[in-house]
Design a protein around this nucleic acid. Structure first.
Lengths: 190, 190, 190, 190
DNA sequence: TGTTAAACGAGACGGTACGTCACGTCTTGGA
DNA sequence: TCCAAGACGTGACGTACCGTCTCGTTTAACA
């Protein structure tokens, strides 16, 4: 067994955390459009180079902040029936108050930068899809979903509505909306 | 009846068209992220001021280009039944090949700039929603949609899936996808 | 006869002067080593790009400042005899108090940057040499300089001593030093 | 008698020599302007700290390299007469081909950094002056120099011409130039 | 048929942030 | 204690665009 340390001064965990926090604070206060690498560095008390050394863009910093925060929070309910699972999952998912600035900022960046888009999909969005897929797979096993319904389309419907409302901000995004959508989905798969 | 002419040299229609074309060409060639006002002006053979005189931002130029192109193309099918209408509407809507760079660019801008977001919603997105709403209202009148189904949620489902796939680019966006979604919606509203 | 104006907004004379003054002030206060383009721009109330648009480097700004100031000051004495001319020329030339920071800064830059070195030679140093050459040519015509003495070497001697003392700062650089050198040169050319 | 050893690991002579060589190689290849501490360290296979531990700046490294190389080479001729000594000294001194990049780099640094300027003067330039002074003192003892001629000024003349040509690079710097200057000096001191 | 006034092209302007470079210092494990 | 390695805070670099401004020129309606 050998030491897995690389030579040289190790990466500063203090700086890493200061950067992630600073990014979230700047974002919450001034919005994603006003977010700058220089601003993050200044607030974190860190050199710009320390940011560029570890993250290819400011969006990747924000994504890491989000993943750090959301790490523990993905819970897949297992209530025994599709309607119960869906309501539990969607009411929780739809109550992402405060996350809107983060999510639309990341999405904006993903739309402008294909490289980041891949990271965003793989590290964030696809994880959420997998959680929902688990619920649907259990429902399929129980025979709660008609065999001619494509579960991937159902996932698109659920997250489509979520993101569409997140982006347009034209309709409420809360537990009630989650319940309403859950009931529509249940109706559609019979 | 009065002359609506203002004194001075009138706005140049030539310049206007050159700007809209240049914007679309730049966008198609280099993507929205690389679009700059200076680039548009240079390609159009126009001074920057001429752009700023008539549009508040480059996104508004692109939106105008899009609306110019799409002006005639919003047709609301009326086939006599919800399934037929939906299939007609969605197969056409989902076949927007080539429009993706424009649409995701505008959406990115809308996410970053709340002022433009309003313009984008009011001048583009809500128009699309209204078309679908017309179809649904006719179906409701015919009794094809259960009374406890909120048509606005149905619209969110349809455009949610459309935009979600447009943004993520993880699943096909074509006539087949349109038909699949149409059949799911029909199933859900019974 | 046509207007020789180029199209577009003309160069701002105000900005030009503000930049040259700011450069000289910064240089006098903090020295050439601490001179930065950002510092000049900030003090002049000007964007950095306005400096880069017109000067390839900060050294060229300083050189322009120097030439602006020194424009009128090159006077070639004509007293009728080599000793008198030399004393007049050297006492004046050697009394360049306050210019030392400027001159050694420019020389340092010229040593580090061959492109600027050419500009410095052609626009400043060779002009000084030409003035002395005029004096020597008159002396040659009068037969005051032995024919086997190369006037270019004499110029090197005079400016060599000047610059060597400027650079090393090990010996006085004043009117007395000028007189002493003048008498040595006169002695050498007999 | 005590051991002059300090505790701990002794300084690595290997590293010292690698640093001096690397500095000279970088300088000869890319010029002084492109010389960096990081570049020297990388080429020498040495940590940056090892350089900073022993030298205050990169210029001091180069100065040490130069002094290492030039250690043995200062020879003061003693031919019995001023003209012979001067010709011998100047022809040798002026033939410093290959040294130009080193010398102008060090001079540039000295002009920008007063601390290094002192080191450069004391450790390099004044040693050269002393050699010439020895020759002149012998000539004074022999009565070859008129008593009203300041030998320090003569030294300034000689090194002034040398450095002025080194800096401007406008005239040859070779044995012939050395002989020409020697004959002018001899003429001037009669 | 000139006068008036706004739009036009060109491009310079004061700014902001970018991503990079090198500085000189600090912090590891190993010699 | 020194060494190689390399991360750190710092600060300036030169560039790209922003949105505004100031030129001389063009183009129409009005006088």
């Amino acid at each position: 067994m050998t030491s897995d340390r690389r030579p040289g001064r190790p990466r500063s965990e203090t700086a890493r955390r200061a950067i992630l926090s600073a990014a979230m604070e700047e974002l919450q206060q001034h919005g994603y459009a006003a977010l700058t690498v220089e601003g993050i560095a200044a607030r974190a008390g860190v050199g710009k180079q320390t940011i560029y050394r570890w993250w290819p863009s400011k969006a990747d910093v924000v994504l890491d902040s989000l993943l750090d925060l959301a790490a523990e929070r993905i819970t897949v309910p297992d209530e025994g029936s599709l309607p119960a699972d869906l309501v539990a999952f969607l009411t929780e998912t739809f109550e992402q108050r405060g996350q809107r600035p983060v999510l639309i900022g990341l999405m904006a960046q993903a739309l402008l930068d294909p490289v980041f888009a891949t990271a965003f999909r793989d590290r964030f969005l696809f994880g959420r899809r997998a959680a929902l897929r688990e619920i649907l797979d259990r429902a399929i096993a129980r025979g709660e979903i008609a065999p001619d319904v494509d579960p991937e389309l159902l996932i698109d419907v659920v997250y489509g509505v979520l993101w569409y409302r997140l982006l347009l901000d034209h309709a409420p995004l809360d537990a009630a909306a989650g319940r309403q959508l859950a009931s529509l989905v249940v109706r559609a798969v019979r």
